[in-house]
Amino acid sequence: MSVKMQINGQEVQVQAPPASRLLDVLRGELGLKGAKEGCGEGECGACAVLVNGQVVNSCLIPLGQMDGAKIVTIEGVPGDSPLLQSFHDCAAAQCGICTPGMILAATALLAEHPQPTMDEIRWGLSGNLCRCTGYGRIYEAVTQASTGDAHG
């Protein structure tokens, strides 16, 4: 099946079986390895990407549904995104395997709540597991990105 999508601002056409997982298409055909596979069943969020502005788990999406979709992966997050800087400032990436998914989930969160409360942060990121940080550095990074209150 041939599917046309816009990935990180670029039109691409992919030829692959329709039930292929978007995750495999991104990592395989398109060489975008920023999305990771942590569980393959929608639980961990390591494979998260944005589809039409919403955070979703690419391991649960069949390619057949992506015709015409606008997809953003970590590789397509604009370089001036305050989240990239704040994750760095706050040492929010430890082993880093959850980080791309976490940053995309945070991107969607900040689009909906530009000044999120701690509760909104905690509910908004609850589909992304991180085993390293205990989430403290991540809360701080998201808070910093939302207030523009850089430090370090």
Binding site: G34, A35, H88, C90, E140, G152
Partner: peptide, 28 residues
């Protein structure tokens, strides 16, 4: 917390490659 930790905490050397999704894990 951030006051405390700012002190003497240079940026992680592995930070950016992980944040940009460029670090290569075994499956990558």
């Amino acid at each position: 917390a951030s006051e405390m930790e700012k002190k003497n905490s240079p940026k992680r050397v592995d930070g950016l490659s992980k944040i940009y999704g460029k670090a290569l894990y075994v499956d990558d």
